[in-house]
């Protein structure tokens, strides 16, 4: 039995956590409560008059087909970003795990993109794919394909999905590599003696054993795609063309700060807040008590 350690009551521990609590209150709790409050208000564009309207903003939102389109678009976007970045990361991690010579080099290079700021990543892809001066449209032209994401919504969507996924690969790669390396080597050897080839070993032994990591990453990636891709989208397409890349979080910004519909925008962010809370609960319930092997 561990003995409980008793300390004399003192002010020190409270002082030590105070900075963190202040930061949390100023930057999280207060804005969140403001958003909650604002979501119940209607304000004119100049901020001259405000009216308390209860849930009218939410009613309007749910009746708005554009909002449902954005919802659908966000789900498609998140699913594809998560799937693409996780699949590529797993493939790269599986390969990096097998490499013996220069493994440190590969790992370092593969982790780098994570250090790139979203806006910078957006600018990078903006130049590569710019229809008039980008290198990719120039190359694609040789294959007879005319790339212009400023006109075609699907191409714009593909572009933001690629860049958002690319940015997240490094993060997923790190976790998958750690997951793969924690699998005892003797398990793979036992499977090899049992006659399983590399592909079979991967799907029947390795993949099930990294599944806790996979599930964790799935939640993290969905959260990322939902909320942290704002910078990339803003830099690349600004939600266009014709709202083709406007996902929920971008719509919050667009309606609130461009359209100046503060109440409606606040209502949207409250809904997003609800989604984050839901995902966090899922994360805690399933990942925290994840199945531990051995």
């Amino acid at each position: 039995m561990l003995k409980r350690v008793h300390f004399e009551p003192s002010l020190l521990p409270y002082l030590l956590v105070l900075p963190q609590i202040v930061i949390t209150i100023v930057f999280f709790v207060w804005p969140a409560s403001q958003a909650l409050y604002q979501s119940l208000l209607v304000e004119d564009a100049f901020g001259l008059s405000t009216q308390f309207v209860w849930f009218e903003n939410f009613e309007e939102l749910f009746a708005d087909p554009h909002y449902w389109d954005a919802f659908q678009r966000t789900f498609l976007f998140s699913f594809l970003v998560a799937a693409l970045s996780m699949a590529s990361a797993l493939l790269l991690a599986a390969m990096a795990d097998r490499v013996i010579k220069g493994s440190g080099f590969y790992r370092t290079m593969l982790i780098w993109p994570y250090a790139v700021a979203p806006a910078a990543a957006g600018a990078l892809w903006f130049f590569i794919f710019d229809p008039t001066l980008g290198v990719m449209p120039y190359i694609l032209q040789f294959f007879g394909y005319e790339w212009n994401h400023k006109i075609y919504g699907n191409e714009a969507m593909a572009l933001v999905i690629f860049s958002a996924a690319w940015k997240q690969i490094a993060y997923n790669f790190l976790f998958f590599l750690a997951g793969l390396q924690s699998i005892p080597k003797s398990l793979i050897e036992a499977a090899a003696i049992d006659g399983a080839g590399p592909g079979r070993r991967f799907w029947t032994i390795i993949f099930p054993l990294v599944s806790p990591t996979t599930f964790f990453l799935l939640v993290v990636n969905v959260v990322y795609a939902f909320f942290e891709t704002f910078g990339i989208i803003d830099a690349l397409t600004s939600g266009g063309p014709a709202n083709a890349t406007q996902i929920l979080v971008y719509k919050v910004y667009n309606d609130g700060f461009v359209g100046l519909d503060l109440g409606g925008s606040a209502a949207q962010s409250v809904i997003l807040m609800g989604i984050v809370i839901g995902l966090t609960v899922v994360q805690f319930r399933f990942v925290e008590k994840k199945v531990s092997y051995q």
Partner: peptide, 18 residues
């Protein structure tokens, strides 16, 4: 290894945990 007609018992047993 799989074609050598052998079976091996490992120190840490190497049982497939899942």
């Amino acid at each position: 290894p799989s074609k050598r007609d052998i079976a091996m018992v490992f120190q840490n047993y190497a049982l497939y945990p899942h």
